[in-house]
Design a protein around this nucleic acid. Sequence first.
DNA 1: CACATTTTGTACCGTTTGGTACAAGATTAC
DNA 2: GTAATCTTGTACCAAACGGTACAAAATGTG
Lengths: 181, 181
Amino acid sequence: MRVFWKHGYEGASLPALTKAMGINRPSMYAAFGNKEELFRKAVARYVERSGAMFRAAMAQRTAREAIEALLRSIVCAACGGEGGAGKVRGCMLVQGALACGQESDRVRRELARRRCEMEVFLRQRLERGQAEGDLRRDVDAAALAKFYATFQNGLAVQSAGGASAEELMKAVEVALRAWPE
Amino acid sequence: MRVFWKHGYEGASLPALTKAMGINRPSMYAAFGNKEELFRKAVARYVERSGAMFRAAMAQRTAREAIEALLRSIVCAACGGEGGAGKVRGCMLVQGALACGQESDRVRRELARRRCEMEVFLRQRLERGQAEGDLRRDVDAAALAKFYATFQNGLAVQSAGGASAEELMKAVEVALRAWPE
DNA sequence: CACATTTTGTACCGTTTGGTACAAGATTAC
DNA sequence: GTAATCTTGTACCAAACGGTACAAAATGTG
């Protein structure tokens, strides 16, 4: 997962993957079928793990607090923290296969679908906020979700490019000023 | 340029590149040296062209109008418009080489540098706004620039993933609400 | 027209890619 | 303890990768 995360689907070579897994090639093929299937498994694990952080953020009392918690924990996870050797910057769903050769197009679309899925969860949390009265009902929840999802994607690009947690945290504070009311 | 833009540095194969250029491999090597050099030339042309749009936006009267014009034209260019066959979605500086094999690391860093450069231009425009009095002097221009640069990167990811111009335009309107005062 | 120069096309180079065949080694069952 | 099963390691496959040597063709120059 970490190798795919760091180098993307195409940039991760079989030797690098098998070395990181501590097994050799035939074992990997016996266990996963092929590289694409292995990648899907890695993505599933990534989503599962970051999903824990995501749900923790969404569990905040208000929609606004949920968004704030989400953005802050993303910055923390994507480019801050203790930063050991195994730490990978950025978001796997973004840098896994943004642009690639046409033979990897299925993977690219799959990642786009999962990003879209995340945005749906975001919108649903906003709508819940509207239902619970902590977010005005006349705001366009879809537009607001699209905005924060877009900003979130931008954070992934920024941290992949080496931005520091401090400066991104300031950008998050600006982003929170776009909150209605 | 379009082939690199669409498939990224590693995803663009020599046959695809030479076919698009209408020349064969030895001619390409005679003219550009190697693939990396060709990519740098393509990036330079891309920056030059989109730089025209960028400067046009920055020439608006106030800093706020400049940012608004920039974001709107980015949405227009990245995923809207007439959309012919040759139209490529997203931003080359983002999807050119976000994550890749370590043999392309120089290219990746080069793109990160150019994205950073764009952010610097943005910040300078904001500071000019402060000097000219259309942006409050107590706002953190660096943080504001980082925010809009991040959002801009997010737009690239969104449009690469297939988002429509309409929904992104709504997200832009939300982003503009983060403007101080 | 003949010569020198440059551009083009074909064929190749070594390397690396994702993916397998197959036999040796370890493990389990009886 | 022996036989059957499963896992592992080595070696290999065809294809595609980026990059080049070299000769044919086209061009320019006297």
